[in-house]
């Protein structure tokens, strides 16, 4: 976390801007971050521009270690991911790096999340009965389940809505702590440690060390423990030191609006 001592805070910002700022602040310098399209890219770039210039991004289509200063990529496979990359191969190589243990964090999302940080990005409907004819078909795993399996930790970005935070997923695409039992991931053969943080439009969440259930760590500005719980479809644990997350600084917002996403591709201006 960066020091806020002398910095000016901004009062006018959107939930998406807050999510990106939170995503950036949880990233540590000099770590290898395997990232998906969209908000994770903005968060990584913001971190590179502020407290963590030594972050090493990896994109699944093949680029390792780029600096995203050629304009924000519109895809993890597009040309802009290769700007100043230090290694450039393909999907197999990128994912092999995760299995080998080179990737400290995976940065992923989904349409649904359960209390143990498992994610669904495949389908809505009864599984397996309706798998071949789902009620709503989502794009599919892409690389999310690979990151969830084999990055050492994952950071999850979600829109905080009750219908997305559910006790039971309709389909488990990307493994978190599975049923939450001790050693569940290891028994399944998964090498990574599992979810580290969930960053949402309303809260910063983590997981209880014993039960692996989701725990509220901080509320975003303007939210309360109650408002976060009301928008969550299962009971949250609440950290005894729960606090209010600091709003974006003037400089963080300037970087997002003017340098990183000036055309508002990922961060809508409202």
């Amino acid at each position: 976390m960066i020091s806020k001592g002398m910095e000016r805070m901004h009062t006018n910002f959107t939930p998406q801007e807050m999510i990106v700022v939170a995503g950036s602040r949880v990233l540590e310098n000099n770590k290898v971050i395997f990232a998906g399209t969209g908000l994770p890219m903005v968060a990584i770039t913001l971190a590179q521009f502020t407290h963590a210039p030594g972050i090493i991004p990896v994109f699944e289509a093949g680029a390792v270690g780029p600096t995203l200063d050629r304009g924000l990529p519109l895809s993890v496979g597009c040309s802009r991911t290769t700007s100043k990359a230090s290694y450039l191969q393909g999907l197999n190589t990128a994912f092999e790096l995760t299995q080998r243990g080179f990737c400290d964090f995976g940065f992923i999302g989904g349409a649904e999340i359960d209390p143990y940080g498992n994610l669904n990005s495949t389908m809505m409907g009864q599984f397996p009965e309706e798998y071949q004819k789902p009620q709503l078909r989502l794009p599919g795993s892409g690389g999310a389940s690979d990151m969830a399996a084999s990055c050492e930790r994952t950071i999850i970005i979600m829109a905080h809505e009750r219908r997305r935070f559910v006790e039971k997923l309709q389909y488990l695409t990307s493994p978190g702590y599975l049923d939450g039992s001790e050693g569940a991931r290891r028994r399944a053969g998964l090498v990574g440690q599992g979810p580290y943080r969930v960053i949402t439009t309303k809260a910063l969440l983590g997981f209880d060390e014993k039960t692996h259930r989701m725990k509220l760590i901080a509320t975003m500005p303007g939210e309360t423990v109650e408002s976060v719980q009301q928008n969550t479809g299962f009971e949250l644990l609440v950290d005894e030191k729960v606090y209010e997350f600091a709003p974006p600084t003037v400089e963080e917002l300037r970087l997002i609006r003017e340098e990183i996403d000036p055309r508002g591709y990922f961060i809508k201006r409202k």
Binding site: F95, Q99, T122, F127, P128, Y131, S141, S145, D146, A148, A149, S150, Y171, L172, T173, S174, P175, L178, A184, R185, A188, G189, L190, V191
Partner: peptide, 13 residues
Amino acid sequence: PCRSPLGSDVPRA
């Protein structure tokens, strides 16, 4: 052999 999709519903389909 591969680590993914261990743990998920992916191998069920």
